[in-house]
Amino acid sequence: MKAGDVKVCVLRIEGTNCEDEMYQAFKMVGADPEKVHLKQLTGQVSDSLKRDIEDYDILAFPGGFSAGDYVRAGAIFAARIRSAIGPQIRKFVESEKPVLGVCNGFQILVELGLLPGLDDVMSNEPTAALYTNDSARFECRPTLLRNDNRGKCIFTSEVPKGKVLMIPSAHAEGKLLSMDPKFVDRLEENDQIVFRYVGEDGKDAQYPWNPNGSPSDIAGICNPAGNVLGMMPHPERVLTRFTHPDWTRGYESEEGDGLVVFRSVMKKLL
């Protein structure tokens, strides 16, 4: 497959607001992205606008405040997907096509039961929650993420293990919770922990470097198969060096730290 043949569905509903950056990210790595409204997949539009999820190679859930974050962040988007195209989404994931959820997108993947996916590819009910930050506030600042994945996640194949990336966070509900006391151990065993927040010294993050109080400083996880990644920070906001806060002060790379997530998944597909 050529890069230009990789069709990416950047899925949105009302209240999604990071679809342009997500679209641009896939464009920059040579893919063929399209911003698609959920109604285009569920057929509630005129024929020329109808789309089929099966025709896409990658599904991406951008950030934002889908449906106004009412009920719970991501819950309404997830419920609408589940009721209208749940089986197709399950099939998409089972065929190991890549699915990315950033920020609100991560919240949607958790509400949809695709993450953490410990016992089933797509559970009927959420098995985890992205819950209100410890500070009870919207936390918005650059964060440092260390790639802790041992090789399962297809979105970090081009990131050396242990490498720290600067990727900004902007969320009010990012604390990953489960009622299973062995939750973090199980994620670790399965190689599902992808990114952890770290402090300026590269060690364990304290607030504000861990913006939400997530256990074990978890910022992003993948499913047991490694093809679904959800992360709270926004890689699509640092595609070039110019959106890094320190770009005039010795930032060496031409590329922004977030682009590698998109390069990695393309490398896996081509």
Binding site: V71, R72, A75, I76, A79, R82, S83, E111, E125, P126, T127, A128, A129, Y131, L177, S178, M179
Partner: peptide, 10 residues
């Protein structure tokens, strides 16, 4: 509640 209003985890 099961389908939308509550997340049984929390």
């Amino acid at each position: 509640c099961r389908k939308l209003l509550a997340n049984p985890v929390i």
